[in-house]
Every structure is written in C-alpha cells, then in structure tokens.
C-alpha cells in the first residue's frame, strides 16, 4: 500500500514532481502513463527512495523517512529502466540479487531464497536461461530476467519502470499478465507504460502524469478519453472497444490536425 501526500521532487533546481498525492490499495495494478519527461520515472524513484522528495510518503503503513534502508528494500522492489549488467553473472545469480534485502544473495542462500529465485524464474519464463551469462542474452530476455530479480524480492510494493519496453508482443502480454497476477496475490504494482491499449487492458487503474502533476486518476474507461489524449499526449487516437476494454491506437498528432 502506498500513500503519497504533497510529494515534490526538485532536481538541479527544476521541479520534476509537483505536490503529487496518491493512495493505492493492496493488490492494485496501477499503470502510470504520460508523455516523455512528465515525471513518471521520478515518481517511482521517489517512492523507492532514490530521488530526494519533500512531502509525506507512507509505504505499507510506515513512514518512509523512519524506515531503514533494508526495511524499505524489503517493502519496495524497484525495476529500473536500462537493464544494466556489468559482469557476465549467471541469470540465476542475477535473480538471487533480489534476495539481498533478506540477507541472502548469490553464493549465500538462506532459507526461502532458492524457492523465491525458482518461482521468479518460472514466472518470467526464464528457467531455461538460468545458467547463461546475463550479458549474452537478448534485450527481451534480459528484461524478463531483471523483472525476475525484482519479483524475487517478494516485496509488498513492486515499482516497474517500462517493464515491457524491450519485449516482443507475446512477452509483453505475458509480463503484463504476470504483473496482473502479482497484484492479485496482494502486491501493489505501479508500472510505467507507454502502450495505452495494454495499460487499459491490464491495469485496474490509470494515473496520468503531465508536467510533474497527476492530471487524471481512475479506471481506464473513465480516464482514457479523447480530450485527455489530446491535452496530455497531443494526439488523436482511434478509439475502439474489445471485451469491454478500450483499444486506443494513436493516429494523428495535433500538428497533423492543424495542417
């Protein structure tokens, strides 16, 4: 569960996140959407304790300021963009890094670590990659392994920054279905997504950020209307319905419309 009250982040003198307030319930899958540079990543980094934030942040009922680094790391799992891996560590060891907040990690497994790693590998369809060096994987395989690392933390809050950016369509659907199941098991999931249709398909709630502020927050059917897409993203989209969910295909930019 996440509670944010008037959370602001200022980086290099510029306000990147401006008095953001947000309350999430246990088991929600929230898609965070917005144009590039809107503050989506900064929101996740502020919750994870990676960006200096003013305001009040409560995580799983505790004030984030009063949490130790380890307690916060056990409560919040963060999957950053970029999928950095400096050394050719085996995939199993990469996923085991997720157990560090619990005192485990590669080469020093504690009780429950092996099961957490195995479950995360299976959930992300990465069991067959377990012994391969992370640096030799394709970008899509690497993205799944990094998600497995975040899942292995078994935190109550999972923050995923563009988790499907490098994936093919089948694995995009697979990963979002996995995040949906993770949320259903009681974890609060915040995922930054750029694909509006997939956000609407899987998320129970959509938070729209523009220029550092939350400009819309609610169920996909209510949030993703034509006016918002024009105002925030500067696009006109084809708006369809399938299985009761909106299907949005960005078609024209505002500039196209003016021509």
């Amino acid at each position: 569960m996440i509670e944010l009250d008037d959370v602001s982040v200022r980086l290099a003198g510029r306000i990147v996140l401006d008095r953001v307030s947000l309350r999430s319930s246990k088991g929600e899958l929230i898609a965070v959407i917005g144009p590039n540079g809107a503050g989506k990543t900064t929101l996740l980094r502020a919750i994870a304790g990676l960006a200096p934030a003013d305001g009040r942040i409560q995580l799983a009922g505790q004030d984030a300021r009063e949490m130790s680094g380890t307690t916060r790391a056990r409560t919040v799992a963060y999957l950053p963009q970029g999928n950095i891996a400096d050394w050719p560590i085996s995939v199993r060891d990469v996923v085991a890094i997720g157990r560090i907040p619990h005192g485990g990690g590669p080469g020093r497994e504690r009780e429950g670590d092996a099961a957490a790693v195995a479950t995360a590998l299976a959930a992300t369809d990465a069991v067959h990659l377990a012994e391969r060096p992370i640096t030799e994987l394709s970008s899509g395989e690497r993205a799944r392994v990094m998600l497995a690392r975040a899942l292995a933390v078994q935190a109550t809050i999972l923050l995923a920054d563009e988790p499907i950016a490098a994936l093919d369509p089948a694995h995009q659907l697979g990963v979002l279905a996995l995040l949906e199941r993770t949320a259903a098991s009681g974890t609060t999931v915040l995922a930054v997504l750029h694909d509006l249709t997939l956000a609407a398909r899987f998320a129970s709630r959509i938070v729209v950020i523009d220029d550092g502020r939350i400009v819309a927050d609610g169920p996909p059917q209510k949030v993703l209307d034509e006016a918002l897409l024009g105002r925030v993203f500067g696009v006109r989209a084809l708006h369809l319905q399938h299985d009761g969910k909106p299907v949005l295909v960005p078609w024209l930019t505002q500039a196209d419309l003016r021509r």
Binding site: G49, T70, A73, Y78, D86, I89, I97, G105, R108, R149
Partner: peptide, 20 residues
C-alpha cells in the same frame, strides 16, 4: 564485498536493495 554484487546491476538496483 557482498554489497558489490547488487551494484553490478547499477546504482538504482543497489540503493533500492538497501545499500548505502
């Protein structure tokens, strides 16, 4: 030394794993 393993996945992963 054990803190270096998490750092190999970048500073964000290391910090969010509880490492100062």
């Amino acid at each position: 030394r054990h803190q270096l393993t998490a750092l190999s996945l970048g500073e964000d992963v290391a910090t969010s794993s509880g490492i100062d």
